[in-house]
Nucleic acid binder design. Sequence first.
DNA 1: CCCCTTGACAAACGACCGTTCGATAGATAG
DNA 2: CTATCTATCGAACGGTCGTTTGTCAAGGGG
Lengths: 214, 214
Amino acid sequence: MVNERTDETSTGQSSRARILQYAVAMARQVGLEGLTIGVLAKQVGMSKAGLFAHFGSKEDLQLATLEEARTEFLRAVVVPAEQIERGLPRLHSVLFDWIGMMESARDRGGCFFAAAASELDGRPGAVRDRLVEVSGQWLDWLRRQVVVAQERGHLNPDIDADQLAFELHAYGQQSNWSAQLMNDQSAFDRARDAMRGRLQTAATGLGKEMLTNS
Amino acid sequence: MVNERTDETSTGQSSRARILQYAVAMARQVGLEGLTIGVLAKQVGMSKAGLFAHFGSKEDLQLATLEEARTEFLRAVVVPAEQIERGLPRLHSVLFDWIGMMESARDRGGCFFAAAASELDGRPGAVRDRLVEVSGQWLDWLRRQVVVAQERGHLNPDIDADQLAFELHAYGQQSNWSAQLMNDQSAFDRARDAMRGRLQTAATGLGKEMLTNS
DNA sequence: CCCCTTGACAAACGACCGTTCGATAGATAG
DNA sequence: CTATCTATCGAACGGTCGTTTGTCAAGGGG
């Protein structure tokens, strides 16, 4: 009863974390449903039962993997943007970091959430519910930053923030589709161009200045 | 050796066609990989082995299902547009028929190709190759119609046709994602608004007239 | 009338899946 | 030293998958 979760060097914590990193990498390529305990265990270098013991069920493994992917996403995309000026600069930064993350995952299966989304829509359950929640938070993050940019006079105040977030998100999704399925080398540049163009159209005079300076 | 594939009433042809319609419907919900011979057979109302005999392997079943979905897509989206004036009107028509098809499939799992794409990218094989081919044809159809619209003075001639096709396709993909995963009721209207707005921006004076008249 | 093709069937096969069950080694606590 | 706990293991279980095999009824051509 002593030493409750404070031991940093315990094998338990670190091996669970190691498993989850492999799990995210594997799910990027075969999806959360295609994730297989036996194959995952072989990659990590332990037995099926040993790995399984860290999670009570496959669903729990999927949930933990989803949480790990969410953490990686926040760290790579959202957190860096919080040091950027709120409004259009921060929106621009987060969009390009997002594309950058998908671009860096190009040869590793692409976007984790895109792979998870299409196989989980239509299959009810806790994993799907959580994915809907996480994806909704991300889309809402974009929408809120659009609103802030409007309040600060960077973006035209009479545009529909939901609509703009919809379109910006569409470019990111399309770049992943284009790169992963069609093997299109220029997919990410196209997404960046589309985002730049769309923000330019929606920007006020002040906003346009900000865009040309970045 | 007589009677080679000319018998319309033979059970063979019609039951194979019936199987494929069920297969497309099932793949819309669970994907081409999630398609299962046993479950499919139960839905069709025949035995596993009886159904399997129509296709030499599961891969052949997947290929035939993909072909059936392609035929349905062409019939619902591409063929009707061929009666519309080439250029911007035809492009506009095909885009809206596309959205309309996804909207009508809303409660049946959404877009077949979107479901197939993310689970097949990264899994080499004949099915993936064919899906890449079919998807490429569709994207190229859009691009070519953009070019025609430029040649006819409907769209600004100095825009990148590949880029515009990329963005228009992005809205369609996003609408399916938003409707299927996020259960967003307004997803299809958003896609239509995005397409209208994007075409409006890219249109010449002549093109803008055409858009307001439709 | 017999033969042979055709479409469908039940049953079984091996492979792989998630999961359960004891056993084992090492660290920790009393 | 002994008892306990933790992480891991091999082996097995029941289930589902794609696939194979052998059988059977129906029907048309010689």
